Simulated scan of single mutants.
Amino acid sequence: MALFHGLSAFPLTPADTNGSVQDGLLTRFLDRIVEAGADSIGLLGSTGGYAYFTREQRMRAVCVAVNHVDGRVPIVVGVGALRTDVAVALAEDAYEAGADGLLLAPMSYAPLTEEEVFQHFAAVAAAGRLPLCIYNNPSTTRFIFSEALIARLAELPNVEAVKMPLPENDDFAGELARLRDITPKHFAIGYSGDWGASNALLAGCDAWYSVVAGLLPKPALALTRAAQAGNLAETNRINTAFQPLWALFKQFGSFRVMHAMADVLNLGSILPPRPVLPVPSNERVRVEAAIDRLAQLDT
Score class of each variant (00 low, 15 high):
Leu130Asn: 06
Glu288Ala: 05
Ala154Val: 06
Asn236Thr: 08
Gly45Pro: 14
Pro280Leu: 06
Cys63Val: 10
Leu103Tyr: 14
Phe143Val: 10
Leu104Trp: 10
Glu116Asn: 11
Leu215Asn: 02
Ala197Ile: 05
Thr141Leu: 09
Gly80Lys: 04
Phe242Ile: 00
Pro244Leu: 05
Leu223Glu: 06
Gly45Lys: 12
Ile41Pro: 00
Arg284Ser: 08
Ala2Gly: 08
Leu102Cys: 05
Tyr209Phe: 12
Leu156Phe: 13
Glu168Ser: 12
Ile144Val: 14
Ala177Leu: 10
Leu297Trp: 01
Lys163Gln: 05
Asp298Cys: 11
Pro74Asp: 00
Leu149Asp: 02
Asp194Trp: 01
Asn199Pro: 07
Gly19Met: 07
Gly196Ser: 10
Asp298Leu: 08
Leu26Pro: 03
Gly253Arg: 08
Ala290Asp: 10
Thr27Asn: 01
Asn282Arg: 08
Gly42Ala: 09
Val212Ile: 09
Leu26Tyr: 01
Cys205Ala: 03
Arg256Ser: 12
Gly37Val: 03
Arg58Ile: 02
Gly128Tyr: 03
Leu232Met: 11
Asp31His: 07
Asp206Met: 02
Phe145Trp: 06
Ala148His: 13
Val257Asn: 08
Ser192Thr: 14
Val287Ile: 15
Ala226Met: 03
Glu234Asp: 13
Gly49Arg: 09
Asn137Ile: 12
Leu130Pro: 06
Ser269Ala: 14
Glu283Met: 07
Leu294Lys: 05
Ile75Pro: 01
Lys250Ala: 13
Tyr109Gln: 11
